[in-house]
């Protein structure tokens, strides 16, 4: 096959050439610089930089909190998509538009707003503070939300809220009502129809939304640092570790950790592409 199929439309060379030039300049060349920079380190140094106990603790916090946040959004995202597609209630259009707020609201703004709300004297945090009815359920200290690892989960849940809703919504809207009617006429209960007919159809979209949320959460920085408290070994996230290495002029250390994060991002990107291909095929769009 030739490089390009024939077409009478003009501008192929110009548009493709410029696209590749700009992509290389802004994205590919700088990423290549990051990867070659790690070759300055020998393997032993690289390994000690990425396996330092304080850094390993940040992987656990970052992956754990991201997984929890994505899991919360898997359930609530399905719920919100369900309610928006299937039920009608006043203000539905407004709520639908508002779901995208975390994509539009700068992360630093979300960070300071959530930190203030969930602090022990904040609008939401005060209900969980020591000595309150809800707080007492969790012991004499109450349930501190901000400046704790749980604060990271709260921030990440906010930031990744739209993903599952937006991947599930169109698929749910496309499900043919006849399928559910058929299942019902064959004697299935409503719950059985949900579990055996609707849920399997939604599965690829749910998984795609979950992985998009997880991938975004792992790299997130702005919203988290205000609410996390940033205590070493307890509530430090990996992106913060890169920043603090940079502030100590430890470029090699920062680069090594960044390469680990980059590899994780690539693997997730491949997984997401695979999932999207699978879900398109499942829906018969390929």
């Amino acid at each position: 096959m030739a490089f390009k199929q024939n077409s009478v439309l003009p501008g192929f060379g110009l548009s493709l050439g410029y696209s590749i030039f700009y992509l290389s300049l802004i994205v590919l060349l700088p990423l290549a610089a990051l990867i070659t920079k790690t070759f300055d380190l020998d393997w032993a140094h690289f390994w000690s930089a990425v396996s330092e106990p304080r850094v390993v603790a940040t992987y656990k916090v970052t992956f754990g909190a991201s997984f929890l946040a994505a899991l919360i959004n898997l359930v609530t995202g399905l719920l919100i998509a369900w309610v928006l597609v299937r039920y009608s209630f006043p203000g539905k259009r407004l709520i639908d538009a508002l779901v995208d707020l975390p994509f539009a609201l700068p992360t630093a703004v979300a960070g300071i707003a959530l930190a203030t709300l969930y602090a022990p004297n904040g609008w939401i945090g005060q209900w969980f503070a020591a000595g309150t009815p809800i707080g007492n359920l969790f012991g004499p200290e109450g349930l501190p939300l901000a400046f704790q690892p749980i604060g990271i989960v709260i921030a990440l849940t906010f930031v990744t809220l739209p993903f599952v809703v937006r991947t599930v919504q169109p698929v749910l809207a496309d499900i043919e009502q006849e399928l559910e009617e058929a299942a019902s006429s064959l004697g299935a209960s409503r719950w059985q129809i949900f579990r055996l007919v609707i849920l399997p159809t939604l599965l690829p979209a749910l998984l795609t939304g979950f992985s998009l949320a997880f991938a975004r959460a792992i790299g997130e920085y702005g919203s988290v640092i205000f609410i996390a408290g940033n205590m070493p070994f307890k509530s430090e996230i990996t992106p913060l570790m890169i920043i603090s290495k940079l502030e100590q002029y430890d470029y090699a250390g920062a680069t090594a950790i960044a390469v680990v994060m980059l590899l994780v991002s690539f693997v997730l990107l491949l997984a997401i592409n695979g999932l999207q291909w699978w879900s398109a095929r499942r829906l018969g769009r390929n």
């Binding site: 700088p30 990051l34 991938a215 790299g219 992106p239 890169i242 960044a258 994060m261 991002s265 690539f266």
Partner: peptide, 10 residues
């Protein structure tokens, strides 16, 4: 797909 912090670092 790249973390914003990594984007700055490059």
């Amino acid at each position: 797909a790249v973390s914003p912090v990594v984007a700055g670092l490059i």
